[in-house]
Design a protein around this nucleic acid. Structure first.
Length: 374
DNA sequence: AAGGCGGGGCC
DNA sequence: GGCCCAGCCTT
């Protein structure tokens, strides 16, 4: 007897417990496709609590999909600053432009899948939530719920294949076909509130009666965690230099790759060996009396980063930006002075905002320049 | 199939 | 500290 993914108890629980998230329409009302699209892109590998303030700011600045499509890519990237996975911002902007140019919002999974940044999950989620297509998007929540409901003691691609098959079969269940958007969001809420990765609250779970992992005492043990990959340490050396007006020298990273298109403090390439303050002479963007401002640590998905930050104050910047556009030649992009009040509207990563926060120490303590790190 | 791609909240 | 999150893309 295969358990149902969408029993009546699930909808009853959802109708009582559903989270009033800002992109959700009131019960019974149709969801705004633009709101659903925007939230789903933001929610990729990102928690609800993190997304909510970003979602609000985006809607305030870009109330409609057409407004987003008409914006500059850089402004979208700036509004995305701190949210991470910045390719999402570019893809979101490109997707909005494609939809606006076409004049019709794609409604089916197949059409949504063609938009940039729309993989199998996001396409299915938008189709189900915004357009009531009976398809079950498989995210981390759904994978966990299904793995437990069917006691799938698998991992990796094998688990994904089984889960996908079960999700496709579940899409045929009558209760789900009557309320596809509520059905998938019920699974999300279930995964967030009850069927949690650790310490699941099976006692009040509407799926508990049919849950095979629960019956076998395996609920918390499934799904099996992926083997952990090691995170190597990398080191950088960056320079925070200000002129008398408080302007900071920044450069733009290449448009693709890590932190693509974001501004950063000039510095030396990130490497496996630590830098010392003495390396300033070789890597500094200009001649100055550099002081150690501090060390900034930051964790990325696949490596840890430790940045040594040197600072200096100049009365005025020397002539900068010899070449207008060096990016095509593969060289570093030009240094550009930025006023402090403009930083909030600039595409900046969280790690660089940490570095800039050390700038407060520039104005203080007028002691002698440090000669060494640590 | 595997790895690059952010960041923060939680235990 | 490690783990996980409403994943996608490239190789």
């Amino acid at each position: 007897m295969t358990p149902s993914l969408f029993p009546p108890a699930l909808f009853a629980w959802y109708d009582r417990m559903r989270r009033p998230l800002p992109w959700r329409a009131p019960p019974g009302a149709p969801a705004d496709p633009y709101h659903v699209l925007l939230s789903e892109i933001m929610l990729q590998q990102t928690t609800v609590g993190t997304v909510i303030p970003y979602f609000a700011r985006f809607l305030e600045r870009f109330p409609t999909l057409d407004a987003l499509a008409a914006a500059d890519e850089t402004e979208v990237l700036a509004l995305w600053s701190g949210l991470g996975y910045y390719a999402r911002a570019r893809n979101l902007w490109r997707a909005a432009r494609e939809i606006a140019a076409r004049g019709l919002f794609p409604r089916r999974t197949e059409e949504l899948r063609a938009l940039p940044g729309f993989g199998p999950y996001t396409a299915a989620a938008v189709a189900a939530i915004a357009f009531a297509e009976p398809i079950v998007p498989v995210d981390g929540n759904v994978r966990r719920v299904i793995a437990r409901l069917h006691a799938l003691d698998l991992a990796g691609p094998a688990l994904d294949r089984r889960v996908r098959g079960i999700a496709e079969a579940a899409a045929a269940e009558p209760l789900f076909r009557a309320r596809p958007g509520d059905g998938v969001q019920a699974l999300f809420d279930l995964g967030a509130a009850l069927c949690t990765p650790r310490a699941p609250l099976c006692l009040t779970c509407p799926l508990a009666p049919g849950c095979q992992a629960r019956a076998q005492g395996l609920a918390e043990a499934l799904p099996r965690p992926k083997p952990k990959l090691e995170r190597p340490e990398r080191f950088g050396l960056h320079f925070l230099v200000r002129d008398a007006e408080g302007r900071v020298l920044l450069r733009r990273r290449p448009a693709s790759g890590l932190l693509g298109g974001l501004w950063e403090l000039p510095g030396a390439p990130w490497r496996e060996r630590a830098y010392r303050a003495e390396d300033a002479a070789h890597h500094a963007p200009l001649k100055a009396r550099w002081r150690v401002l501090g060390e900034v640590r930051h964790g990325f998905t696949h490596f840890r980063l430790s940045l040594l930050i040197l600072g200096a104050e100049l009365s005025a910047f020397p002539r900068l930006g010899v070449s207008e556009d060096k990016e095509k030649t593969g060289e570093e992009s030009a240094l550009v002075p930025h006023a402090p009040e403009s930083l909030a509207r600039l595409p900046l990563s969280s790690v660089m905002r940490k570095c800039l926060a050390l700038g407060g120490r520039l104005a203080q303590e007028s002691g002698p320049a440090h000669r060494a790190a640590g």
